[in-house]
Computed example of a mutant assay.
Amino acid sequence: MAMGPLPSQRGKGRRAPMAEINVTPLVDVMLVLLIIFMVTAPLLVTGVPVNLPDSRAGALEPDKKPIQISLDNEGRVFVDEQEVMEAELPTILESKRPPQGGEEPQVFLRADRGLDYGRVMRVMGELNRAGLNKVSLVTTGAEQAG
């Protein structure tokens, strides 16, 4: 006969494995992250207030930080949130042009829907003259179109 522990004595000194997950630390971390995002999200939405037109076109994913040119409802021109005079625009755009053989930067053009079409085309003409031809026109998404 084999000698071993009696069935009544098995596992007496061991604890049963815990089958529950303690979710309290997870909830704490998630609440902290939620608070951080709620505080920082309004700070990320800065820029020139422009009433953009609607479009069904899909969104573009830029590889690098694009040059942003905005025209507000009064026709003022902003380059990367800095207001510039229209006479200074060609000089500023020339400075943004890459060196010979360099990769051309992406340009996002945002113009208020109430602006004269000719004013927007003058800015696009200056972009073309400066050699910045990768221009994307920014609109609101199709979900917001009503």
Rank of each mutant, 00 (worst) to 15 (best):
L6Y: 07
P7V: 13
S8C: 09
R10E: 12
G11Q: 10
G11N: 13
K12R: 13
K12Q: 14
G13A: 12
G13W: 10
R14I: 11
R15E: 13
R15F: 02
R15N: 05
A16R: 13
M18H: 05
A19L: 14
A19I: 13
E20K: 10
N22T: 12
N22L: 09
V23L: 10
V23T: 14
V23G: 02
T24Q: 06
T24S: 02
L26H: 05
V27D: 00
D28V: 15
D28Q: 10
D28G: 04
M30Q: 09
L31M: 14
L33N: 03
L33Q: 05
I35N: 01
F37P: 02
A41Y: 12
L43Q: 09
L44E: 11
V45T: 11
T46K: 13
G47Q: 09
P49W: 00
P49S: 08
V50S: 06
N51P: 01
N51R: 07
P53V: 15
P53M: 10
S55N: 08
S55C: 06
S55E: 08
S55I: 12
R56W: 02
G58K: 14
L60F: 11
E61Q: 14
D63G: 07
K64Q: 11
K65S: 04
I67C: 03
I67N: 01
Q68V: 14
I69W: 01
I69S: 05
S70T: 08
L71N: 06
N73E: 13
E74Q: 12
G75H: 08
G75Q: 06
G75R: 03
R76N: 12
V77G: 01
V77I: 15
F78W: 15
F78V: 08
F78P: 03
V79Q: 03
D80S: 05
D80R: 03
E81C: 03
Q82F: 07
Q82G: 02
E83Y: 02
E86M: 11
E86R: 11
A87K: 15
A87H: 08
E88M: 12
L89F: 08
L89Y: 07
P90E: 12
P90T: 13
P90S: 10
P90W: 15
P90V: 15
T91S: 10
T91N: 10
I92C: 00
I92M: 07
L93F: 01
E94C: 04
E94F: 04
S95H: 06
S95Y: 04
K96H: 00
K96V: 05
K96P: 03
K96L: 10
K96C: 05
P98A: 09
P99V: 15
Q100K: 14
G101Y: 11
G101E: 10
G102V: 09
E103S: 10
E104A: 08
E104N: 00
P105F: 07
Q106I: 11
V107F: 04
L109Y: 06
R110M: 15
R110Y: 02
R110H: 09
A111C: 03
D112C: 03
D112I: 04
R113K: 13
G114T: 15
L115E: 06
D116I: 00
Y117L: 12
Y117Q: 15
G118M: 12
R119E: 11
V120N: 00
V123W: 04
M124T: 14
L127Q: 02
N128C: 00
A130Q: 04
A130R: 07
A130K: 07
A130S: 10
